[in-house]
C-alpha cells in the first residue's frame, strides 16, 4: 500500500518534470516562434508606433515657420516646469505690437512624456516625436530650444 503510493508519487514527479522539459525542448527546436528583437542590430527596420511619446518637438514647414503663438498654455499645463516660453514683441508692418515667441526652451531631462502640453496647445504647435535614444555625455545637450533660429509664425495662426 505504502509502496504503491510512493511509486506513484515518484512517477508523477518524474512525469511533471519531463512535461516541463519537453516544452523547453520544443522552443529549442522551433526558432521561428521566438519573438526576441535584436535591438541595436535592427535599428534600420525598427518602426515605433506613431503615437509613441519620445520627446516634444515643434514641427516647422519648409519656409521655417511654426504654429506657436507664445500663449504659454503648454508651460502652465506641464507638471514639472519642463517648458519655458520666452516671449518677445514683434512690430507688425502696421506698427502694432504683437506677442511672439523668442525661444521655447525644453528640458528633456525633466520631461516625463505625459503628453499634457501637447493636449493643452490650442494651435497644435508641438507634438511628440518617436525618438528614444536620448542618452548624451553632456547634460547641457538635453536642454533644447524647440523653435528653429530665425523661424517665424505661420500666417493665419492666431
Amino acid at each position: 500500500m505504502f509502496i504503491t503510493k510512493y511509486i506513484q508519487e515518484v512517477w508523477g514527479a518524474v512525469r511533471s518534470l519531463a512535461t516541463g522539459l519537453r516544452r523547453t525542448m520544443y522552443y529549442f527546436t522551433h526558432h521561428k516562434e521566438i519573438i526576441t528583437q535584436q535591438y541595436p542590430d535592427n535599428r534600420e527596420t525598427l518602426v515605433l508606433p506613431e503615437r509613441f511619446k519620445g520627446e516634444v518637438i515643434m514641427p516647422h514647414d519648409d519656409k521655417n515657420e511654426h504654429r506657436c503663438t507664445g500663449c504659454t498654455a503648454c508651460e502652465l499645463a506641464c507638471p514639472n516646469g519642463t517648458i519655458k516660453v520666452i516671449t518677445k514683441f514683434d512690430i507688425k508692418p502696421e506698427g502694432k505690437k504683437k506677442k511672439a515667441i523668442d525661444k521655447l526652451v525644453y528640458h528633456l531631462e525633466l520631461c516625463t512624456m505625459c503628453n499634457l502640453c501637447v493636449q493643452a496647445c490650442p494651435s497644435d504647435a508641438i507634438k511628440m516625436a518617436q525618438t528614444f535614444e536620448h542618452s548624451v555625455f553632456d547634460r547641457g545637450l538635453l536642454t533644447k530650444i524647440l523653435n528653429n533660429p530665425g523661424s517665424k509664425i505661420m500666417d493665419g495662426v492666431e
Binding site: 508606433p49 509613441f52 511619446k53 503628453n115
Partner: peptide, 24 residues
C-alpha cells in the same frame, strides 16, 4: 499599449472626463 497610449509602462492615458485619445 504602445500603439494606443504611446507608452509601455507609464501611460498617463486616463484623464478626468475620459481618455486622452481615441483607440488606435
Amino acid at each position: 499599449m504602445e500603439e494606443t497610449c504611446g507608452a509601455r509602462l507609464t501611460m498617463n492615458f486616463m484623464m478626468p472626463g475620459g481618455v486622452m485619445q481615441d483607440l488606435h
